[in-house]
Design a protein around this nucleic acid. Sequence first.
DNA 1: CGCTCCAATGTAATCGAAATCATCGATAAC
DNA 2: GTTATCGATGATTTCGATTACATTGGAGCG
Lengths: 337, 337
Amino acid sequence: MATIQEVARDAGVSTATVSRVFSAPELVLEATRKKVIEAVARLGYEPNFAAKSLRTLRTEKILVTVPDISNPFFSQVIRGVEEAAMAAGYSVLLGDTRHEEAREEQYAAMFRRKEADGLIFLGHRLPDTLAEIVAAKGPRTPIVNGCEFRPGLAVSSAHIDNEGAAAEVMEHLYGLGHTRVGVVTGPLVSPISSDRLAGVLAAAQRHGRASALRIAIGDFSIESGVRRTGELLDEPGRPTAVFCFSDEMAMGALEAIRQRGLRCPQDVSLVGFDDIRFAQYLNPQLTTVSQPMEQIGHEVVRLLLDILADRAGALQNVTLPHRLVVRSSTAPPPGPG
Amino acid sequence: MATIQEVARDAGVSTATVSRVFSAPELVLEATRKKVIEAVARLGYEPNFAAKSLRTLRTEKILVTVPDISNPFFSQVIRGVEEAAMAAGYSVLLGDTRHEEAREEQYAAMFRRKEADGLIFLGHRLPDTLAEIVAAKGPRTPIVNGCEFRPGLAVSSAHIDNEGAAAEVMEHLYGLGHTRVGVVTGPLVSPISSDRLAGVLAAAQRHGRASALRIAIGDFSIESGVRRTGELLDEPGRPTAVFCFSDEMAMGALEAIRQRGLRCPQDVSLVGFDDIRFAQYLNPQLTTVSQPMEQIGHEVVRLLLDILADRAGALQNVTLPHRLVVRSSTAPPPGPG
DNA sequence: CGCTCCAATGTAATCGAAATCATCGATAAC
DNA sequence: GTTATCGATGATTTCGATTACATTGGAGCG
């Protein structure tokens, strides 16, 4: 409640001195500092944030937009972001865009109003108004992309090698002897899906199995996992393995498999993507691609802080390591019996 | 980038008129308004947030602290909070406290610096410094508690009837014929656990089964579900049903059951709590208590906005409806064979 | 015709802290 | 002994918007 003026009066010094006690204590005599500290304690003074922000033109906040906060993959990334931001003295403004452009635009406006020093977006879309700013200001615009990588956006980013990871999954399945593989992707407008699909196709072609691929387009939700996997299983020439582009869809796939009286992995092998905390506790334990979610969070914050501190040079698109975690949801295909 | 002064000059009006165009357009002549709007578009003006906030002493932000954002229960609540806040023109400052008091205190300081107009905390602890403010300012302090209810805190809150819900679970189990029931709680310092435990004990006593209860204290994590349930199952006089105070711990319990070669529900029935999105896709589908997570989020925001708008009278502790969802993880106990 | 009233707009104070520039006293240098 | 230097602190401007109050010009009225 108290202002810096009241503290100054109470301590018998000027406001400048009070300010210095906080921002440059080495310039203030020990005795004076003590007087000020006492006055601060006496009055319960806390510097007003808006005033400080107006003067310094900095907010010490990072705006983070995410397509769906209730998705455990994203909430783990957010956790990493929050941790790294806090450690650097920044706090996190959260925007759940629910995949809606209107909400993305609302948050873009917040950025333009300077309610945050920087923006981290975890989806694949950057609102046009922000893309214009990026085009005008170049790589020093404090906007960073996490989880996805779309070269055209011209912003720094941190993500895994989605194409390579998906190819590894296919190698694993082909290695087990599978030939007919079903794939449940996410929406193909996002690089995260199209890159993985590219990896799938490349591996399939290497093995001469491209024509035996069955592709279904999901939306990363459990329900779409149930539905799309069900459709794949009901086609003639049922796949002996299904690769879902998220663990949540794989959970749905398990349900579809069970609904049809099939067993995983004996009848159908299943692979997910992300390695959310629950993947290893499913029945059967899920084979999946482990993404370093918290590390992605840390990394995007680091990239952003570099830009804010003017330490950043060119764009950086950081590829973090992933890992194929083979558990018990994958096995050789059933014999011809 | 442009300031209100530049817009005013460009449009040939005063800054007051520009400001009015945004905050009270009905006071401005249509022609004047048009000139201003054009200048705004020309210069790409966006009102500076810090300046506005300093003048109005309002931030239009709500600080939300949560013990663990990566917990799907909390992230669903957060989702409701975000939605309701956005609808009312507020944005969400997220604080992941990781159950650490030090982080809670950091966020408390943010509140005191007025970086947010109000605080919603989803844990069970309110830092002392804030408790003092509540004690001094009374029920008009813009602080609201979600999910938990601790009468001594003297803040408004929204939550379910945890005691009643837990009692219903026990009635369900006793109704199926179970007599030896194991319970895995959360930390008993939080009302969310102690209230549920009170409900469990009350129901057990009604049925004369209190002495057959086995209580283990977990921490809501999957791992603690594995460990504590494992311990219960290894005791002599193994329980025929286990009630975990969270779905995550129930997932761990399923794992513990499987590890011992037991089947759920044939050998051991299992009940969770929360009804997170994954509960109905586990194998077997989990019987659990459904909490209205998004609604809790909406409600705490409503309570907070009432306080901020000076609409609030006395404290409100809102109990929202829960529902016992019986799925296939509960069945009658195995016969004496 | 002169006065009141009101709609439309302008002037300027204000919010609270940061930062630049000015001041003052004391010490050091010549 | 005078002046340059420096450390410590104070006075004042500034950040950019909001808003209370002042001003202006015209319509309405007697």
